[in-house]
Structure formats: C-alpha cells, structure tokens
Design a protein around this nucleic acid. Structure first.
Length: 538
RNA sequence: GGUCGGUUCGUCUAACGGUUAGGACACAAGAUUUUCAUUCUUGUAAUAGGAGUUCGAUUCUCCUACCGACUACCA
C-alpha cells in the first residue's frame, strides 16, 4: 500500500519552526517509503483566518526544499511560477480541493451519519449558557465538561422531544452536533513513537463536530474525514494532539473506518530555551533567535518578526538543525542534507521528550554549511551586501579571494563585511585603547622604517589573473618574508610592531594578517595607510 | 483542579538489564600564530528522589517531585 502522509497547518499566522519540523518529518517519512507528502490547509476557523499565512506556509516549505507531492499546483504569475493550494481535481491532485473551507459541503453528511447511527447528537445550548455553566463550576472549584453525565440535563436531541428538536434545527442556527462519547469504556491506543496508551472514556468530553452557525466542521471532524478520504496512512503531528487521540480513535470506530485508520505518531514539542513552556509564535525576538523560518509582518499590527532566512541562515542548515532537534540517526554523524536524511530517518529514533532549542548549535550548523561553499558561491552571496559604490570597484575574483580568506572566521555571510572591511576601505578612525597600547615611540619609529621598507621593495598585490595558489605562495608569503625577515634582523618584538601596522590598516588590532591585507589593498594604499596612521598618532 | 505525556552533562543527544555512562554545541586550559579567528590537544560537566524486581537497573514496576501538553461552537 502506498504511504501517504500529510502536513495540515492552519493558516492562523506564520508557520513556526516546530511546524516546519513536523512538515520535515512527514516529508522524510514519505520520501523514504516512496510515498506521497500531501499539504492540506485546515481553515475551518473563519474567525482566526490571517491573510498571507497560506502563502507564507508555501514559501517556507519551498525555501526548505520540502515540496508537497499533492495539494499544490503551479501557477504562472507575471512570468514566474508560483505555487498555490490546489482547488481543481487533476491527476496530481485527485482529492482536490485541499483547502477545508472549499470542502465545506462535504462534512455535514458525515456528522449526520454519526447521528443516524447513534454516535452523535444535536446540541442547542448557547455559548453563553455553556460559559455560564463553566463559570459556575469554576466558582465551586469544579470543572464543567459536556460529557456522558451532564448531557443528560442539557438541551440536546437526547433530552428534548423529537418535534422540539426538529423545530430548533429549522428555526435556529446556533446549534451544534456533538460526538457522543461512549460510557465506561477504555480506549487502547498505539503511537509509533510512544507505544501503548490507554484512556477511560469517562474522562473525555463530547466534542463539537459541526457548527450550524458557520456551517463548518471543527478540527476533529474535518481532520478525520479528510484523512480518511485522502487515504492517509500515517498521521505524524505535534504532541499537542495527544489528548485528542482517544476521540479520534472513537471517531474512526464510529464511522466504521477502523480497518483503514492511519497509524499515529506524536512528535514532542519544541520548548523555549528559558524553560517556560512550548516554543510559541509570540516568543519571536524576545529570545534572541528567530522562531519563524521567514520574516513575518503581522498584517494587522505591522509588527515584524524575524526569520531564519533573513537572519542569514542557509536552508540546508535550518533543515539540518531541525532534523536533529528531537531525532538522531543513531550514529555520530550530524551533518545531513535533506537528501541524505531521507534514507536514514526513522520514527523509532524520534525522542519522546521535548527539546529545547539552542542558538549556539544552530549557528554552528550554519558555519558548517558556509564552509562547504566555494569562494565563488560566497562571493555571489556577499556582493549584494556591499554598498553600490564599493561593489562597483571590486571584481568577482577579488571578492572570491577575499571570501576564501575569511570564510573560516564567520558563521554567516552577513558577517563578512565587518570582517573584511579593511580590504575595501581605509579605516575612518583608530581604536583609542589600541592607540594607547601600541603607538609607543619605539613602535612608531619602527613603523616608519617599515614604511620605507615597503616603499623600496617590490610588493606583489592582487590582480584578477592570479590563482589562489599564486596568492598564497607567490604573494603573501613573499610579503611576509620581507616583513618578518626585516623585523627579526632588527630584533624587534613581532607582536608590537605588527599590531601597530594592523592598527593603521584596519583601525584596531584584531583581525586579518598583515601580509594578506597588504596583498589585497596593494602597495600604494598600504603606504598611504601607514603614513596616515603615523600622522594621526604622532 | 482533572486527563495524558515526559525527566541522562548548561543545551542537543548515545548507551541488547552488565560501558571508566559515549559524542556534539557551549565553556575552560594548553599548543600553533604578528593580533583575532581557524586548527590541534586536553579538561570541567549528567542518569530528578525513594522503594521494589534482579547476581546486577540509566534501562523494568510503583510512589513522590518537577517539567510540559490538553482541558473552546481554536487548530
């Protein structure tokens, strides 16, 4: 039988990283089994619909490389291919539409079928009446639940005479259909990650399945009906659904779909690093790292939440760190591309306990992928970050060689500019503490001598025709020999005079090697920076 | 409060009922280096507590503690 799994987000806001992880695990599971990964939009709550959320979900998955096999269709828009949730049936999308709001007419008959078979009933209690009951119970330090006991004294088709029921259905529109949880049973469940579980039905409440007010099903009904119709074989979802699992088992049983009921796997939650609850959409920037894959601008408040993409993470790194948050391959390998994850992924190795996200490790993952890039790739990523004025003055080869030099000093490409700024422009100021420390009379006179040394000698410098080998062996090493040979012959302290030069070249005494800097900026610029430094600190 | 789930270094995690409880990130120290970073080496650091089963428990059972999810005509 073909493996069919689905990711079924609700478009109530941006997808957060826990959601992306759920999608990822579904995707990996499907791909490994040679099955299908389906995207379905669960928008049965008309109140909480957020414009743009659906597009955000699609774009986030696309950024990660997680492309659904079913549920989306490619549409040409202004000459570009964009993906949309599929509304029309096709060979690729046989179960369309994949948006539950568009499946609206479908659900009522299933709810009615349950009533006809005695598994559900009409309930006419108003929202106000119920919240009043809840408030009263709370005041008495008890909890009101609509269940096998309380339903006997509430307004529903179990207690009211048939013609009154008929009249209320026809004349009012605030009634609901509730599932009738069976009395005194034990539901035995199995979870692919957690194993066997049992729950007593008497602790469960009669959930609303369908609402007359908006003619829409609730999550529970729509979810079970659609999973059945779409022939889902495994449901892999967040652990927040675990308490609903008995209800879902009972629903499959009531529909008579036990034979084809999917197997369930509940993923542990992603926790806040500061240890208070699950990672939630609101945490955003408060915790110092993105909670969302992509930047999100709240359409109502204009509030901006940052995203991994905009923070400079590579999608490969994001996918990799998400995969390892709550799952491990059983080996010591930690670096996996999406493709590499497919054959090794297994639900058996998913961790049961919640995982706290760790920013340092996330940065480390990005660093690993950054190092795997070629200088040319990095140069192409670096150029857009430079100002137009600077960018115009430097060739691709120059940028590539700069990237080769600095790639191991950064976690993100967006750090490149700061690390390499001395290679693009002279410093505009000198660090005061470094000036105090290194601009001693001795060091200044030594620097003056080195100025003459550089002026009198041939200094190799960057040209577009050089290879990386030239750069290392014929250029930097030559410069280094010249300088260090001279300094040693004079018996000066290397760490003193070199730092004085670095201060003049870069504005402070941390960072790139002196010979590298001279090579990149060239003889004239090097001489001018030393001269300027001497003038400024004399 | 009730129901359900969880608990191994600070964090992510490994360990057929038998290991000096392993790895990674972070941190610290040392080496290398003209500074910083890189690199290399080393180190600090954990089975929540208590009973039980067993020759033997991180691993199985129970209790307690703590953490979390759920408890809507939201998903």
């Amino acid at each position: 039988m073909e493996t069919r799994v689905r990711f079924a987000p609700s478009p109530t806001g941006p997808l957060h990283m826990g959601g992306v992880r759920t999608a990822l695990y579904n995707y990996l599971f499907a791909k490994q089994k040679g099955g299908k990964f389906i995207l379905r939009i669960e928008d049965t709550d008309s109140q909480r619909f957020v414009p743009g959320a659906e597009e955000y979900i699609l774009e986030s998955l696309a950024w990660c490389g997680i492309v659904p096999d079913e549920g989306i269709e490619a549409v040409e828009e202004n000459g570009k291919t964009v993906y949309k949730i599929a509304s029309e049936k096709s060979e690729k999308n046989p179960h369309a539409p994949y948006r539950q709001s568009e499946r609206k007419p479908l659900y009522r008959q299933y709810a009615e079928q349950l009533i006809a078979n005695g598994y559900a009933y009409y309930a006419f209690d108003s929202a106000e009446e119920l919240s009043k009951l809840r408030a009263e119970a709370e005041a008495a330090k008890q909890t009101f639940i609509y269940n096998y006991e309380s339903r006997k004294s509430l307004k529903n088709s179990l207690t009211l005479p048939p013609d009154e029921v008929k009249r209320l259905i026809e004349t009012t529109d605030t009634w609901t259909i509730r599932f009738k949880i069976p009395e005194g049973q034990t539901v035995k469940m199995n979870d692919l990650i957690r194993g066997e579980m049992e729950v007593e039905t008497n602790t469960l409440d009669d959930k609303v399945l369908w609402k007359a007010a908006d003619q829409l099903p609730t999550y529970h009904l729509a979810n079970i009906v659609d999973d059945h119709l779409m022939e889902i074989t495994e449901v892999i979802r967040g652990a927040e659904w675990l308490p609903s699992l008995p209800l879902h088992y009972l629903l499959y049983k009531a529909f008579g779909w036990e034979d084809t009921m999917p197997r369930f796997a509940h993923l542990s939650l992603l926790l806040k690093p500061d240890g208070k609850g699950k990672l939630s959409k609101r945490d955003g920037d408060r915790l110092g790292f993105p909670v969302f894959p992509l930047k999100w601008v709240n359409p109502e408040t204009g509030e901006v939440s940052r995203g991994y993409r905009e923070d400079g993470y590579y999608p490969e790194a994001f996918v990799n760190l998400l995969a390892l948050l709550g799952w491990n391959p059983g080996t010591e390998q930690e670096l996996f591309t999406l493709e590499e994850l497919i054959p090794v992924f297994s639900l058996e190795r998913v961790i049961k306990s919640g995982a706290k996200f760790n920013v340092d490790k996330a940065k480390w993952f990005n660093e690993q992928y950054l190092r795997r890039r070629t200088p040319e790739q990095l140069a192409a990523e670096f150029r857009p970050l430079l100002s137009d004025e600077i960018s115009a003055r430097f060739s691709d080869k120059y940028l590539a060689q700069v990237c080769a030099l600095i790639k191991e000093r950064a976690h993100f490409v967006n750090e490149f500019q700061d690390i390499s700024k001395a290679l693009f422009a002279a410093p505009s100021a000198y660090d005061e503490n470094d000036v105090k420390k290194f601009c001693t009379p001795d060091n200044l006179s030594h620097a003056k001598e080195l100025h003459s040394l550089i002026a009198e000698n041939e200094i190799p410098s960057f040209t577009d025709s050089q290879t990386p080998e030239d750069y290392k062996q014929n250029c930097c090493e030559k410069i280094e020999e010249l300088l260090t040979g001279y300094i040693k012959a004079k018996e000066w302290k290397m760490g003193q005079v070199m730092n004085t030069l670095r201060l003049f070249f870069t504005g402070n005494t941390r960072g790139l090697g002196i010979s590298d800097i001279i090579y990149f900026i060239g003889k004239d610029e090097a001489l001018s920076r030393i001269a300027n430094g001497l003038k400024a600190t004399e």
